[in-house]
Amino acid sequence: MRYAMAIDTKKCVGCGDCVVACQTENNVPHGYCRDWIVENVTGTYPNVEIELRSERCNHCDNSPCVRCCPTGASHIVEGGIVMVTPEECIGCGACIQSCPYDARYSHPEGYVDKCTFCKHRVDNGQLPACVEVCPTKCLYFGDLDDPNSDVSKALQNRKWKVLAPEAGTKPQLYFLT
């Protein structure tokens, strides 16, 4: 099993609903977020192009955060989801430094926090909160090993990219372009 997410950058309008849904679902403290919107504008006016990306932890296959964690608080669970155990985290910040996507932050209570692909929901057969609420249905989540999952189908007929592949982390967020 390999959970992954596909984000359709052509359908995303950058409304930020995924961000708010995550903050509500996961009780993210004020001023922090586990997912966010990036607006990438290229070209010179009037010929400009915009790419909107809903970004979050990439749940990398080769995750540097898990490798550098001195206590094992950062670990990988079934399906490739990268998780943090708050009771084992000492808040040293090594994983924050190691993440090319800056997807982790220091929770006001001290431990390091990040996207969990809403594991608590996925375990119950539900979709992650961000996927559930997306009004343009531009987020696809599922098991890459299952050819009939939403994410596998989304990737079948589209061109896609991952972010900073040169970092060698084997990220699992696929951006449909």
Binding site: W36, I37, E39, N40, V41, T42, Y105
Partner: peptide, 11 residues
């Protein structure tokens, strides 16, 4: 030109 705007401002 390339412009990045991220809707994120974490301390």
């Amino acid at each position: 030109e390339e412009l990045f705007v991220s809707g994120r401002d974490i301390p």
